[in-house]
Amino acid sequence: MTADALPPVVDAATWEGRLTTLRAREKAATRELDAIAAERRRLPMVEMPDYTLDGENGPVRLADVFEGKRQLIVYNHMWFTGKEWQCPGCTGFTSQYTRLEFLDNYDARFVIVTQGPIDEALAYKQRVGNRMPWYSTANSSFGADVGAPPAGGFAVNVFLRDGDTVYRTWHTDGRGTEQLSHTFALIDLLPYGRQEEWQDSPANWPQSPTYSRWATSKDIATLYGPSDPVG
């Protein structure tokens, strides 16, 4: 950061004018997101096989992961065999979700599915203080079939259950997951933003290599873990 890393100082009327212009763009973006959500509700869906995952209490059918709900959000957590600390991005993203009971009113559930063996996955969950329900697809092709193969990337998938039949209704990965996170939304409000080199920022603004300001998985464990096991 340099001494010049400050926004220009203007009078209140000038500031209000610039804010009003920006707010018009923000409102347009909000309306576009509404339109995207409307289109998402009109997407077709694809029927899924009758997968069996591994849960805290043993094998469980995908239809039973819903626990009676009709809708299910799955975060496919990256997993690397033999690593003490798993993906910091996945660990940080899922650490945000500590109160998911509000989904009950929407007939929905949100869980983590990872390629790691269930015993290792549950141990990692406790180590980092995660409070979401975890399942393993180590003995199933489910992860690979929904865009999260072994040693592969992360993903978000959404499913709808009709009786014992499960349908896949939506998928995203990469930066598509950002809209589900409050961390970047808050950081992007700050004058200096994420402070990453790829961002379009004024001259002399503080910038660091991408990911360098992210908390490590060990940092997250220090802040939030270990936890008592939570289903």
Rank of each mutant, 00 (worst) to 15 (best):
Y124S: 09
D164Y: 02
R131I: 04
F142G: 01
P206I: 00
P206S: 00
F159C: 04
D188W: 07
I187P: 03
T137D: 15
D173R: 14
T177M: 14
L122Y: 04
E197M: 10
T183F: 12
F184R: 13
M132L: 15
Q199F: 10
T172W: 04
N157M: 09
E120N: 12
A155E: 00
K125P: 02
V128G: 05
P149Y: 07
H182T: 11
F159I: 01
E178M: 12
A203G: 06
P133R: 15
L190G: 09
L180A: 07
A138N: 12
A123K: 14
Q179P: 09
P191G: 01
G147M: 06
D162A: 11
E196W: 06
G143R: 02
A121E: 06
A185F: 11
G174H: 10
H182F: 11
A151T: 11
T169W: 07
R161K: 10
W134G: 08
G147R: 03
D162W: 03
T183C: 08
L189P: 08
G174K: 14
V128N: 03
G193V: 02
A203V: 11
Q199C: 10
N204W: 07
Q179I: 14
L180N: 06
F159G: 06
L189A: 10
F184N: 12
K125F: 00
